[in-house]
């Protein structure tokens, strides 16, 4: 595993009117790591994701990806640079098939013009055939190849989560952001998810940042953790350190304690 910083945020701040959702969030993510962003509900975790992926333009601060400043780039350009994400409330293209969902994401790596296939351009047809095969192989990797021709919203919940990840992988990212991947899963499913996350990290040589409430998943899979509370980063470090950090325990008091993991 090579080291070196892939993603860096410097004093990332987001204000909505009078409300400061995230304040001076600075973090360095090293290549090949799986890291976590945790905190109580409304702490500003998803806002961080939205700033990194270009959905929000930060009020202050910078996002550096592979050394380049990507602050304020529109989402599709951020994605083209190699950052992909999933959503907290699954956002699949629900009228399309599973395969189509993955191919849509693969589009960002297509080079032939939009009219290429419609006009019968041989290179475009070949490229799309390749994308199709690649998408099917991705579906195979996440165990969904049997369902490739099913409509996306007909899938069971867990499969929809996996499809969302497969779709993100199809954009050929270097960096993957997962927003609560274990939400709504039972213990066996989240156990499988942890293996799955490690597996795709190794297989696609990714760096992964995830938001998660399931402490078992966070502690089990993350090598480094940031803790947000009311938009402020109150702690960072290795899982063992975070687990015993009094500030973190205080922030979670009244919610689920992170200790029982």
């Amino acid at each position: 595993m090579s080291n070196g910083v892939v993603l860096e945020t410097k004093n990332l701040t987001m204000r909505f009117g009078g409300l400061t959702a995230v304040q001076k969030f600075s973090a360095c993510v090293e290549e090949g790591h799986i890291v976590g962003l945790i905190g109580p509900n409304g702490a500003g975790k998803t806002t961080c994701f939205n700033m990194i992926t270009g959905f929000y333009v930060p009020t202050e601060g910078q996002v550096l990806f592979q050394g380049a400043d990507i602050t304020g780039l529109p989402p599709h350009k951020v994605c083209a640079r190699g950052i992909a994400r999933t959503f907290q409330n699954i956002r699949l293209f629900k009228n399309e098939t599973v395969l189509q969902n993955v191919m849509i994401a693969g589009h960002v790596r297509q080079t032939s013009p939009w009219w290429g296939k419609a006009m019968g351009l041989p290179s475009a047809i070949r490229e799309e055939q390749n994308l199709r095969e690649y998408s099917l192989s991705l579906l195979d990797a996440v165990g969904l190849s049997q369902l490739a021709m099913e409509q996306a919203d007909s899938l069971p919940y867990g499969a929809q989560r996996r499809l969302e990840i497969a779709r993100a992988l199809a954009t050929n990212p270097r960096f993957l952001l997962l927003d609560e991947p274990a939400a709504g899963m039972n213990p066996q499913e989240s156990e499988a998810l942890m293996a799955f996350i490690r597996n795709i990290r190794d297989r696609f040589s990714l760096t992964i940042l995830l938001i998660e409430h399931d402490m078992k998943v966070v502690m089990g899979v993350c090598e480094h953790i940031w803790v947000l509370d009311y938009g402020v980063c109150i702690a960072e470090g290795e899982p063992t350190a975070i687990r015993s950090n009094p500030k973190v325990i205080e922030a979670y008091l009244g919610e689920e304690a992170p200790v029982h993991a």
């Binding site: 959905f55 191919m103 475009a124």
Partner: peptide, 27 residues
């Protein structure tokens, strides 16, 4: 032919969920 190509898939993606389409790198 256009709507059956991946370009068509992209258009349908925009119809279904514009936010997700943007996140998937679609201009």
């Amino acid at each position: 032919r256009l709507v059956q190509s991946n370009t068509g898939n992209v258009l349908k993606a925009i119809r279904d969920d514009e936010v997700a389409a943007k996140a998937m790198g679609i201009d």
